[in-house]
Nucleic acid binder design. Structure first.
Lengths: 161, 161
DNA sequence: CTATCCAGTCTAATAATAAAACTAAAGTTG
DNA sequence: CAACTTTAGTTTTATTATTAGACTGGATAG
């Protein structure tokens, strides 16, 4: 009964997850970023059930993350492609890949490598920076509720003091 | 039947999602990053069922993303805190929040703001950069399968040509 | 000491996922 | 072009996850 929706939460993370947070969604997007374009590609790469894949794909298309485009090779079957909205998820994917690589490595070594095509080297860790490129230490990054957003009860406790 | 596991996939993204990709996990982590520490905080903030919350929390503790620590205020109830592994998810959360803010904004305006405590301004978009801070355009970022990783069938097709 | 709160567990109902069989259109082979 | 195979799904049935709500035993407040 995964019926609860995040879409009304006044939190950007919740609403992002509403669109791409289902169990398979980000892996499908990863596959597209790595060159998959057709139903069978996802199916074979992920070992996902056909019906689950079908509903995840239509959800992603409805959400504007993927779109169906005419096949590049002239086939009558449409292909799936990232929209601008979908391509813009790249920082999320890179951050996830780098975290997984660091904290949950596979015995056989890293698998999805993310490289700088200029230098052919592994990308440095994606990390918050100022406009000028200076790295911001996490202590100086604040995640806070915006003006007008609902008050968080555990912060009220603190604010009382 | 969400019984299929990603943990054996030779992909860093899949193994990251195995640990934090369940429907509620990243929202729980967001709450901790925003100051939540106790069961009731998550419950009230998220509107999640008690039993689902309990199993997500133990999953996150077992996965080493959260840990139970003695309460700071002397209460006999333990608190949940991020481990180093958990804190290291900050880039993922920031990337998600910024994407959601851009592509799925709430009518009432942004909610979870991420700011630079030094300047009190919104963080610039987290984005791949070189060591020197130079932004890397997406065209120059390659997500590729590493040496030894299983061959992807749709790439074989291309490689044949 | 009593009432309430807290952090869960247990039970029953419902929704999502999985596996497998099926289908219609597309593509391939001889 | 006729027969066979592939593709992109849909349908059906079984299983698992999530939910809401009742319940519990220990902590806390009055």
């Amino acid at each position: 009964m995964k019926t609860k929706s995040f879409s009304e939460m006044q939190c950007s993370i919740a609403r992002a997850l509403e669109q791409v947070g289902s169990w398979w969604s980000l892996l499908i997007i990863r596959d597209v970023m790595m060159g998959a374009r057709r139903f069978k590609h996802f199916e074979q790469s992920l070992g996902i059930a056909k019906n689950t894949l079908a509903s995840r794909l239509t959800q992603l298309v409805d959400g504007g993350v993927l779109e169906k485009v005419p096949a590049a090779d002239g086939s009558a079957f449409d292909e799936y492609a990232l929209t601008e909205r979908g391509r813009d998820l790249a920082p999320v994917m890179i951050a996830l890949a780098q975290w997984g690589d660091k904290w949950a490595p596979h015995k056989k070594g890293p698998s999805t490598e993310i490289i700088d095509a200029e230098t052919a080297e592994k990308l440095p860790r994606i990390w918050p920076r100022r406009d000028d490129g200076e790295i911001i230490p996490l202590r100086e990054v604040r995640m806070k509720r915006a003006r007008g957003a609902p008050r968080l009860n555990w912060l009220e406790e603190k604010e009382k003091n």
